[in-house]
Design a protein around this nucleic acid. Structure first.
Lengths: 282, 282
DNA sequence: CGTGATCGATAACCTGGCGGCATGGACCGT
DNA sequence: ACGGTCCATGCCGCCAGGTTATCGATCACG
């Protein structure tokens, strides 16, 4: 009665936790509903814990069920990451995968890559452009990523800072705030700012070009770190936001990584850091 | 062919990876050897990766196998932690478990606990004394722990610093170095220092009292942060080690924790911090 | 150089767990 | 009252995963 939980059980429980409906969850899993009911019951007996409050009309998570839902998601992520990393480790074409947003390297990527080649134990680096870089790290599809603090969730990652820069507001030139020398967060209170916390309003840009297009149209105001604005279109105004926390660009990789090649890449980031010195801590 | 790995498969593979011997691994798992052979083969076919190099006389891990061994250990730890945390979350006696070394709180624990009671969403705290506090956090047996940087491996944890103090060498009064006003790491080169990296020499003390006994006998020299020496026995000398990195005492908890009670405890640590200000970053 | 020991792989068989279908029973809306 | 929805239960078939027996390769040894 003390043998470990199986991933199959966790997956089935998670499906129910997501749907809060055995029938739909079973359909999503491609199995019949009775099998699902019994698996969850067995899981509850095994744990000695009630995970779901069911009536014939509704299903709800107990507090223990909420805990398991979160933990199970992490655990399954770890299992899938194990499979992906193992497959990648056995590729006949050994390499590292570095995830980044297009244009999010502050122009430092070439310097990093050449520095990396010089490091011992380095491997060729393959760059993939992706929004959800943290997700790629956690599920084992990428070995390292260029991230931003405080925008990205760095928990569970090791990091090496690259550079820190203030946050800038990007505005159409005709905007009343565009002439200001500096702004405060409160000045943008009524603007359609991107990125925004909370529900999205209107179209969400998928990349920087789309975002700048929306800014030029006056539909949005963009908040980006200064190292992005260096290569900006000429027809937009940039104003620093003085009371916003500055943004740190950094290399992140999964904590507990034992890859020598990742360590080499991290050293390369340290070497490619502008001014050679240590950047401010995130 | 793309369904996730099962924990049973990972456990069996790990047993082989540990023993490098199918017979012994099978015995450890309480199953017969052929079943184990087949499970590992199936795992290899599923991943499309050779994990083990077997001859009829020896078994060795391939590099991919080494990767999977490490990843599988983490993944299984996460699965077991999920079960433990779920069981603990459903206890009819809700509480937090705080792991620490005896005497390792710098005398601040009472202040932390009273501050915690005042926080919203706090829970009663149960303290357990344990050496391997990081392990307890990772396998879900503890919710938070008092840790030391850089001694403990903080990867995968969130932390809240408590205080920072220099490292002190504890010596018997008759020791030739005991009269010095300060030491450097090199001065202790020939001493039997504790804690020591590398193989243990002689008896390893299990707690502070045992360690100090060995110091008094002249069998060891102890290196401890200054906040420990405040409550030291009178018959021992303490000398600061000037070129050693200072030690930060901090509260650590699993990254990705969503527990409001853990957050309350972290806020309490911030409130109980001496001088009220921010401690130096770890 | 034969012989026995060791150890992983294979073959043949058996069992229990898991999933399928049909149905029961609680609850709600009309 | 009745039909609809939804989770639980009973029963059945199948295969994943276990067992024992055995093979084949390799090495130590007299």
């Amino acid at each position: 009665m003390d043998r470990p939980l199986e991933t199959r059980e966790l997956m089935q429980f998670l499906a129910v936790a997501d749907e809060l409906h055995f029938g739909r969850a079973a359909a999503r899993l491609g199995i019949a509903q009775p099998a699902l009911s019994r698996t969850v019951q067995k899981l509850e007996r095994r744990l000695g814990v009630v995970l779901l409050e069911r009536s014939s009309r509704a299903v709800a998570l107990t507090s223990a069920g909420q805990v398991l839902a979160g933990e199970a998601r992490r655990a399954l992520e770890a299992v899938n990451a194990a499979a992906r990393r193992t497959r990648r480790a056995s590729a006949d074409d050994p390499h590292l995968v570095l995830a980044m947003k297009a244009g999010g390297d502050a122009g430092l990527l070439p310097a990093i890559l050449t520095a990396c080649e010089r490091e011992p134990c380095s491997l060729p680096v393959r760059v993939v452009f992706q929004i959800d870089r943290v997700g790629l790290l956690h599920d084992g599809q990428a070995d390292a990523a260029l991230l931003y603090s405080p925008a990205d969730d760095l928990r569970g990652l090791d990091t090496e800072p690259l550079l820190t820069a203030p946050l800038m507001a990007v505005l159409p030139p005709a905007h009343p705030l565009a002439a200001r020398a500096s702004l405060r967060t409160a000045d943008l209170h009524n603007e359609n700012v991107h990125p925004r916390h909370g529900p999205a309003t209107g179209p969400e840009p998928g990349n920087l070009t789309e975002l700048l297009q929306l800014v030029a149209l006056g539909h949005k105001v963009a908040l980006v770190p200064r190292f992005v604005t260096n290569s900006l279109r000429e027809d937009l105004a940039c104003v620093p936001v003085t009371d916003a926390e500055p943004v740190t660009l950094l290399l992140g990789w999964p904590a507990h990584s034992t890859s020598l090649a990742v360590a080499a890449l991290a050293r390369a980031v340290g070497a490619a850091r502008p001014h050679g010195g240590a950047a401010a801590a995130p």
